[in-house]
Amino acid sequence: MFLIFALITLLGALAMFRSRNLIVAGLCLVLCFLGVAGLFLLLANPVAAALQIIVYSGAIVVLVLFVIMLLNSHEEEAAAQPHRIQRWLGALAAAVLGAGACKAVLSSPGLVRIGQESPARVMDLQQVGTSLFQQHVVAFEAAGLLLLAAMVAAVALVKKEL
């Protein structure tokens, strides 16, 4: 099962990068997100899976596709060829980030516990709520504030006269 979902995720992501067509790329992104949702399910976290589908594939990508369709000129503009050095720098940055993420995950104390406390208990909505509003309440509020600020800024940028 893990292999299937991982393959869906990876193939979706790859197809997204390879496809020349913006809408098809968006659909591949949805496929990728669905794979991620499946992985969440395997991690005994159905709430995260459901939210992944609702928020990411259900709302965000729809909005992205909507905007693409709205601005669709049906003629793909040739992407500006990036400089070679840019490409190498990008690859290097991605590699460093990936290695760092792997290292962080591997060295986290949670990983040690995974082997010991199997099977993991199914995470439900109540637990998510309590952990959000008790342990991570400051981060939660800060994120909310940040998003609000971003929204206000976006409106202020777009609307000339308020």
Binding site: A44, P46, A49, A50, L51, I54, D124
Partner: peptide, 14 residues
Amino acid sequence: NGMGMLYPLAIGSM
């Protein structure tokens, strides 16, 4: 199963 009523919402959003 932990999904509950989130499931139809997720499917509906698809």
